[in-house]
Amino acid sequence: MQRFYHFARQEFRHIARDQMLLVFLFAPLLLYAFVRWAVPALEHAFPPIVEYYPYISMFGAMQTSILMGFISAFILLEEKDEQVIQALRILPLRASTFLLYRLSGATLLATCGAWLIIRWGGLVMVGGWQSLLLALQFGLLAPLISLVVSTFARNKIEGLAYFKILDLVILTPILTFFFPGWVNWVLALVPVYWSFHAYDAAIRGAYFISWFGAGLVVYAIAMIMLGYWFKKKVWRGV
């Protein structure tokens, strides 16, 4: 527990001393304000927007997680750039434990942010326990983003490019609601596809657990694969 505290404190100091990360940290609150007040305010001017409420909520939950994932990815990239990973490797600390510490803060914040939008966003109603489960699954997007960026980007500049590309790629499964067809199953490879559909199922009141459960399996597989690559390319690659 004490180590979690040390990591959390160190991450907070990092964020507090980096303007961009500080903006990213508070951006979910702006997203929430947008979902909670700005979108309903548009309803009078553009009534069909109501039909898009579920997707706006999905986007908000996803974006919150991406932002939190990017914060921890950026800290990991800095550790990579400055070769701090080398110094971490000669600590009595396993790669898996390090990742657990490093990614848990982002996951927790992402879950809280996603829950805020899903449960109290006000655009669509999802029940208490379902909203929490959905938030947890959206929250798992943060460590995935963090692992992809920190493993494959060579430095912080590349990391920013990854962030922009991933932001678009991760949003693509939302298209499956507008353009149905078998091709959409390709997008099922993107873990958030399952979170979007679980969210949709919760709104419709059907098959939520199936979508959610299948999603967890996809997230777990992605997490194991990315964890392995991180260990191979970053942790052992120093």
């Binding site: 990092h14 980096d18 600590l91 600390l93």
Partner: peptide, 18 residues
């Protein structure tokens, strides 16, 4: 190889905690 945004003392305390 240090955390450049942290102070010297913060760096030592972070690593020492392990």
């Amino acid at each position: 190889n240090h955390y450049l945004k942290l102070t010297a003392l913060e760096n030592l305390n972070f690593f020492g905690a392990f």
